[in-house]
């Protein structure tokens, strides 16, 4: 197996001087090709910052990121990102199909090919036939499927996902998790997914990296040797799963993680083997609801000036 991603000594600091805030400090790890790795850490510990550095969206203030050997500066071509906030990440003025085709526009792909590939990938995420709709006409879970399809359409070598399922309901989350595992195996892609949800990280990953509180540093690197074929109910009931999630939870609670001396997180792992989601969460309150209705309401607020006819 070849190395896909090499992160070494990665440090990122926001601001300068007095107001400087170190979000990520001296992170080193590698991800092998074909792996599905999860990074789990408490909310605010610097996970998004880490992903933004890896994807080249922001230049790291220290250390280096290599994608199959090449130093990352600026966004690499064969990398895609799925963001948590799908309602803002999808372009509302484009139809679902046009959203998915978007990245192919910049890659010498003929119009017919673009259309065909968009339809294919939409079908593979279970969204055949919705191409002509606009994003807001779909449910939250479906919108996130569209973002995933859009990320996959250019067949990226590395897919980064930043808390992709934090804004959808538990049922949909389970479906999306299974979808992620399935497309990862079908396409043989490499995925690095970031989450604050302990259960999710264990269920999804081949490997879990546990991050400490801000500034982020790796406190553990666990291999998840659950069977490749996973099931929302039986896997989560299995002894192996329960003990692994317990281990991650304990790691997150350990003094090493709490080194900034802040209040301890709410009891991370509720014991028991029910399949309920969100029971174990490094920060349960983080999932912001961002449905399109809310976005619409926010937009409506802006109109008083425009409704007012300004004339004399």
């Amino acid at each position: 197996m070849s190395t896909m991603l090499e992160v070494s000594g990665l440090t990122h600091q926001y601001g300068r001087g007095e107001r400087a805030h170190v979000a990520v400090r001296d992170l080193t790890f590698t991800i092998e090709a074909g792996q599905l790795a999860c990074i789990v850490g408490p909310s605010g510990c610097g996970k998004s910052t880490l992903l933004r550095c890896i994807s080249g969206l922001i230049p790291a203030t220290g250390g280096s990121v290599r994608l199959h050997g090449d130093e990352v500066s600026g966004v690499p071509d064969d990398l895609a990102v799925v963001f948590q906030d799908y309602s803002r990440s999808l372009f509302p003025w484009l139809t679902v199909a046009k959203n998915v085709e978007f990245p192919l526009r910049w890659q010498q792909v003929s119009k017919a090919d673009r259309r065909r590939r968009a339809a294919e990938v939409l079908e593979s995420v279970g969204l055949a036939g919705v191409g002509k709709k606009y994003p807001w006409q779909l449910s939250g879970g479906m919108q996130q499927r569209v973002s995933i399809a859009r990320a996959l359409v250019s067949r990226p070598a590395l897919l980064l996902m930043d808390e992709p399922f934090a804004s959808v309901d538990a049922q949909t989350r389970g479906e999306l998790e299974d979808l992620t595992r399935r497309v990862q195996r079908d396409l043989g892609s490499t995925i690095l997914l970031v989450t604050h949800d302990i259960d999710e990280s264990v269920y999804l990953a081949d490997r879990v990296l546990v991050l400490s509180k801000s500034p982020a540093a790796i406190v553990a690197d666990l291999t998840i040797d659950l069977p490749a074929e996973r099931d929302q109910i039986t896997t989560r009931e299995s002894e192996q799963f329960v003990s692994l999630r317990g281990e991650v939870a304990r790691l997150l609670q350990s003094p090493q993680v709490q080194r900034t001396g802040e209040t301890a997180p709410e009891t991370p792992a509720t014991a028991g083997s029910d399949a309920a989601h969100g029971a174990a969460s490094a920060d349960a309150a983080d999932s912001a609801t961002t449905d399109s209705a809310k976005a619409a309401a926010a937009e409506a607020v802006e109109s008083p000036d425009e409704t007012a006819a300004s004339r004399s």
């Binding site: 966004v75 963001f83 484009l94 526009r105 910049w106």
Partner: peptide, 27 residues
Amino acid sequence: VKTDTARSLGTPRRYWIGMIVLPAAMP
């Protein structure tokens, strides 16, 4: 989020205004 998305999808600079900024500003 839109800026990040567009950049991560490799939108070239010269299409930026036409493809992202103006559509978003249209309303």
